[in-house]
Structures are given as structure tokens and as C-alpha cells.
């Protein structure tokens, strides 16, 4: 019973990390209808900026979010304005390839600047855990889960209670109707890309608490982010949170009760099933 509870708790904690790294991907797809392959680049930039700030100034990763969030917003909005915007009426595959190119440029730049070595950072709470009865929960993972839930609440409130959120939802529903109603669509696109990128970079910052930092970091998690977004409903932030947690639990139960080697297979089985079911619904 203790083992089952431990595995469930681990699944929930891992799942909230999956959700956090997928929010930005879902938001950008919802508003721009763009599959952002540069998402992996922003995740990777997040871990590198955080690691560098820690290695150079001893800055705590939690504090570094104050830098990675605005930096991510500025970089994301710039990428949208200078690159994505120019291709907005092109076939989707053009934008897809463009953003894939952005990812490759960032990855190779990181190789050139920092080399390919695995790096990691250590804080006073990196290896701390919290005992809850028979359960032992990792403090860094609890922190990331708290941020994930906080991010979900903040995003949901922003979308529902603010003018910007209303504009984002309007553009997501019908771009032309929103433009006719006076919504500055171009600016909304830049804001959506900026928020999505800021979320990705902050997720990277927090994930540096337990994952090693390499230029391949984004590749490791991009596919998992896609699984969560597809499973959660592409544009539904609440659905993404539930999907992330569900995927985390499914992976951990599979690893514990069937075989650890099948852990990552679960994600892709779920992705395939979700895509097939969506296709069937559409037909």
C-alpha cells in the first residue's frame, strides 16, 4: 500500500511538471494555430539561463524566474514579430519548419557557447524531502508542482478576467471576427507567443532543480509536451493540467507494476490513441 501511494504521489508530481512545460505550447497553438517546435528551444534556454545565473552569481533557481519570465516574453514576442508574423498566411508546414530552424539555431549556439557536457546545479534544498506519514516527497518536485498549479490559476484568471485574456480568447475563436470587433490581432499574437515562451522558459528554470542541463534538454521533453497538449485538448489549459497528471500517474504505475522500460511507451501509446480518437470524432 505504501508503495502504491508513493508511486501515485510521484506520478502526480511528475504530471504537474509535464503540465507546466505544456501550458505555453497549448496557448500558442490555441491563439496562433501554430505548432511551436521552438518550444524545446525556450525550455532549453530556461535551464541554461538559470544554470548560468546560479553558477556565476549563485542565484537561486526560484529567484531566477524573475529574469527568465520577462526574458522569455521578450524573446517569444520578438520571434513572433520578426519571423512567425511574416509567414502567417503561409501553409502551416512553413511555420513548422521555420520554428524547427529556430530550435536548431538555439541548440547549436548553446553547444558552441557551453559545449556538450552535462551540467547540474545544487541548492540547499535540492535533495531535501518531506515525510508525510509513510510517504516521502521530494521538495524540489513539490515546489515545481506548486508553481505549476499557480501557473494554471494565473493563466485561467488572466484568460477569464482580463481584457487581454478576452482578446486572446476572441482571436483563438475567430481571428477575422475579432479583428472586425477592434481587437488588435497582430499584437495579440505577439502577446500569446510571448506568454507561451515565458511559461516555457520558467518551466525550464524550475526543471533545472532536478534535471541535468544540456543543449538536448528541449528534445527530451518536447515530445512529452506534445502528448500532454494533444491529450488535454490542444487549447484547454485545464485539460492540459489534468492530462499531465494523468500521464504522470499512468507512466509511474506502468513502470512500477509492469516494467520500468515501458514507462515512455505509455506517452506515445496515449498520443496515438488520442489522435486516432480525435480523427474518429472529426469524421
Amino acid at each position: 500500500m505504501v508503495d502504491l501511494l508513493s508511486v501515485l504521489a510521484s506520478g502526480i508530481l511528475v504530471g504537474t511538471v509535464y503540465a507546466y512545460m505544456a501550458y505555453g505550447l497549448g496557448l500558442i497553438y490555441g491563439v496562433l494555430r501554430v505548432v511551436n517546435l521552438a518550444h524545446g528551444a525556450f525550455l532549453t534556454l530556461g535551464v541554461y539561463v538559470t544554470w548560468w545565473l546560479n553558477a556565476t552569481f549563485g542565484m537561486d533557481p526560484l529567484v531566477s524566474i524573475l529574469i527568465t519570465v520577462p526574458l522569455g516574453f521578450a524573446l517569444g514576442a520578438t520571434v513572433e514579430r520578426t519571423l512567425v508574423f511574416r509567414l502567417r498566411d503561409s501553409p502551416p508546414v512553413t511555420t513548422l519548419l521555420l520554428l524547427f530552424g529556430v530550435w536548431l539555431i538555439v541548440r547549436n549556439a548553446l553547444y558552441l557557447i557551453f559545449g556538450g557536457a552535462d551540467r547540474s546545479l545544487l541548492t540547499s534544498y535540492s535533495l531535501e524531502s518531506l515525510a508525510l506519514g509513510p510517504l516521502t516527497l521530494s521538495i524540489p518536485r513539490l515546489i515545481v508542482s506548486a508553481f505549476s498549479l499557480l501557473g494554471f490559476v494565473a493563466l485561467a484568471l488572466m484568460l477569464k478576467r482580463t481584457w487581454s485574456g478576452l482578446a486572446l480568447r476572441a482571436v483563438a475563436q475567430d481571428r477575422e471576427a475579432a479583428a472586425l470587433s477592434g481587437v488588435p490581432v497582430n499584437r495579440v499574437w505577439a502577446v500569446a507567443f510571448g506568454i507561451g515562451s515565458a511559461l516555457a522558459m520558467s518551466a525550464g528554470s524550475l526543471m533545472s532543480l532536478f534535471y541535468s542541463v544540456t543543449p538536448e534538454f528541449g528534445a527530451r521533453f518536447l515530445l512529452k509536451s506534445f502528448c500532454v497538449v494533444v491529450l488535454g485538448g490542444l487549447t484547454n489549459i485545464g485539460g492540459i493540467l489534468v492530462a499531465g497528471i494523468g500521464l504522470g500517474i499512468a507512466e509511474d504505475l506502468t513502470a512500477f507494476y509492469i516494467h520500468t522500460g515501458y514507462r515512455d511507451v505509455v506517452s506515445f501509446l496515449v498520443l496515438t490513441a488520442a489522435l486516432v480518437m480525435r480523427r474518429a470524432d472529426a469524421d
Binding site: 508503495d3 508511486v7 511528475v14 521533453f221 520500468t260 522500460g261 514507462r263
Partner: peptide, 20 residues
Amino acid sequence: DESFEHLSSDHTSLIVKVRS
């Protein structure tokens, strides 16, 4: 005697298995 995938996203469930 169990394998795990290279670059796994989490090892907690495997470690719980080791404990068990």
C-alpha cells in the same frame, strides 16, 4: 533485474521498486 530507458523523465517509481 530490470532495465530502464535512457534519458528517462523520472526514476522515482523504479527506486520505490528497489526499496520494495
